[in-house]
């Protein structure tokens, strides 16, 4: 479930508001997106994939985490590299090689 919208990284591009299939976000009065409908979040990670500044973090759990969870700790998420991890794998963002280009999975056992 979406847990973090990091104000200091957000550039108010509105992309997450558009991209979210379930309309979780509204635009706040100051331009920063607000998690207006968290119950609608389906934990699909699309907002994070499309955020150009890695300002969003989707926790891997479908239920909300407590306020003191490490999934809401922006410093720890940054230090551990979890923040922006999906975009790195997809190769989305300037100067990155597209992940699809090298996505050769294993041969499946019979």
């Amino acid at each position: 479930m979406i847990e973090v919208v990091e104000r200091s990284r957000c550039i108010s591009c509105d992309i997450c508001i558009q991209v979210c299939p379930t309309r979780v976000f509204d635009r706040g009065a100051d331009g920063i997106p607000v998690i207006a409908r968290p119950d609608s979040c389906q934990t699909c990670f699309q907002c994070e994939a499309y955020c150009p500044t890695d300002a969003l973090f989707v926790a891997p759990l479908v239920a909300a985490v407590p306020g003191d969870s490490r999934f809401r700790d922006i410093d720890e998420l940054t230090t551990t590299g979890l923040l922006g991890g999906y975009r790195r794998e997809l190769g989305w963002g300037h100067g990155r090689a597209l992940g699809a280009r090298t996505a050769i999975g294993p041969e499946f056992p019979d």
């Binding site: 891997p60 794998e89 294993p106």
Partner: peptide, 25 residues
């Protein structure tokens, strides 16, 4: 536990969002 090291590496390449969740957990 039946994935060899080679298979493990290929799995990460093939489906990165599978590991996204495990890494976060």
């Amino acid at each position: 536990d039946r994935a060899t090291p080679d298979v493990q590496r290929a799995m990460r390449k093939g489906q990165p969002n599978f590991f996204l969740v495990f890494d976060r957990l």
